[in-house]
């Protein structure tokens, strides 16, 4: 393959719920105070693109949609080795559901022209739907491989394995294709010093950085504003409520002699008619 593959990796900035900052005692997230991070699933997608470029050459363009702070994840992706970035940022995108988000990202991929492979994470940790990837593939009218674990390209054909319930499916297709990468795929390599150094230099030169990571609007990519945001979303969140707490009913065994506590516990399970007996060998 002469010029390698043109790859778009779609990444998202999500709240970091593993950190205490911005996580309320009831488990809800205060997005303004929460730490932000690259959606962890997207790192596996970026790694697949990096591996593909290492074997076949080509260009990795990271794409994100979100408010201006989402620039941070694009910069971080450059440190990991992406070649360029695009941030689709437009107030009219606010409150987009998966269908509207997929439309906007599809228009962005088309705007990039001649993308061979689109990589996405399997899902995000905040939306948690896994829908956007396949919805983009549908609009692009390309093949998709979701839950992808391994992938290589041989003679211009993509050979990939995908997780299915109860096993693995081995598939073959050709670009253009969209691949959503599972979090059991190979982990993202460490940042290379040269990339980190390059990004450090870039961040001191606003004009150069703006060339490397372009901020685009709906108008730039030719997306119809009525198909994104509230207007373009066929779903809305009607109501939210807290999951009921069942606290306090746990029978806790915490004495000094573990074997005795275990005996008490198992006997309690046995005496309370929980139907466990029939499954003990």
């Amino acid at each position: 393959m002469g010029n390698g593959y043109k790859m778009a990796v779609l990444i998202k900035q999500v709240p970091d719920t593993s950190s205490a900052a911005g996580v309320n005692p009831d488990g809800t997230v205060d997005r303004a105070r929460a730490k932000r991070m690259i959606n962890p699933f997207d790192k596996y997608a970026l790694q697949k693109a990096i591996e593909t470029r290492a074997s076949h050459g080509g260009e990795i363009i990271v794409v994100s949609m979100g408010p201006p702070p989402a620039m941070e994840v694009l910069v971080e992706a450059l440190e990991y080795g992406a070649d360029a970035g695009y941030l689709l940022s437009d107030r009219r995108l606010a409150a987009s559901d998966t269908l509207a988000t997929a439309y906007a990202l599809y228009k962005t991929v088309v705007y990039l022209k001649d993308v061979d492979i689109v990589f996405t994470g399997l899902q995000t940790t905040d939306g948690d739907t896994a829908q956007t990837g396949p919805q983009i593939a549908e609009r692009l009218d390309v093949a998709q491989i979701t839950y992808c674990e391994t992938m290589e390209i041989v003679d211009g054909r993509i050979h990939a394995s995908r997780i299915i319930d109860g096993g693995i499916q081995k598939l073959e297709t050709a670009p253009p294709a969209l691949i959503t990468v599972a979090n059991s795929a190979s982990r993202l390599e460490h940042k290379k010093f040269t990339n980190v150094h390059m990004v450090k230099k870039l961040s001191r030169d606003k004009a150069e950085m703006e060339k490397r990571i372009r901020v685009v609007t709906l108008d730039d990519i030719g997306a119809e504003p009525e198909r994104v945001g509230l207007l373009g979303s066929p779903t809305v969140v009607g109501k939210t409520w807290k999951l009921g707490e069942k606290g306090g009913s746990c029978k806790l065994f915490k004495g000094d002699k573990p074997s005795h506590e275990v005996e008490l516990l198992v006997n309690a399970v046995a005496s309370e008619g929980r139907g466990v007996e029939e499954f003990v060998l």
Partner: peptide, 8 residues
């Protein structure tokens, strides 16, 4: 997502 909420 990752929150102790349910959404309709």
């Amino acid at each position: 997502f990752g929150e102790s909420l349910k959404a309709r």
